[in-house]
Amino acid sequence: MSLWEYANPVKFIRLADRMLPPVAVLALLCLVVGLVWGFFFTPDDYRQGSTVKIIYLHVPSALMAINAWLMMLVASLIWIIRRHHVSALAARAAAPVGATMTVIALATGAIWGQPMWGTWWAWDPRLTSFLILFLFYLGYMALWEAIESDDTAADLTAILCLVGSVFAILSRYAVNFWNQGLHQGASLSMDAEENVADVFWLPLLVCMAGFVLLFLALVLLRTQTEIRARRTRALIARERAA
């Protein structure tokens, strides 16, 4: 019994069928609990007032925006090295979810930034990096859409993902160098002094768990759809050939 067994599309679909309901329910539960707790049962920040509460959407979506790309990178590597189709399709399935997370992070950031910094948008390094990340997502998805042959598309997008990752990291440093920004430092670093207080921290943790589970549920669902679409095409091709 090894992990690679689930690289078989049929087994993966069965696994996804079993995992989807609990994951989805858990995601919903975490999100509801975390957001309600965060929005209604935490005190206002002494400097930022109630605007701080958007953190419960902003931070988890930003986290997932990056982790989705990381997941695509890992999946692309698995496809290049081991040629498991499920892996390539999972990378494809994750891209729109990651792009959406990036948009949520950017939008909530803008809404938060307006009262805090007095502007909807600033060319702050973090904001800019997320915008660039969004462009990478767009290019990646466009390439998948443009190529007809499934395996060719999987190969090309996987290589684009690898090269893109390197350039995304380079951009992050370049942008940092280019403009020292307004954005506060990482709210969740392990240095105790920089950290947000526990009252905010606990509901935030629940929200982050909720976003991770939501991402997992969406990717499972979308991968399953991709596999089924591919299977349909394969069946039609077989019918036609027979």
Binding site: L138, G139, S171, A174
Partner: peptide
């Protein structure tokens, strides 16, 4: 499509 793929990759070179 190529512009969409290449321009994000140009960002670090352009910045520096």
């Amino acid at each position: 499509l190529m512009s969409l793929l290449v321009l994000p990759l140009y960002v670090p070179t352009l910045i520096f």
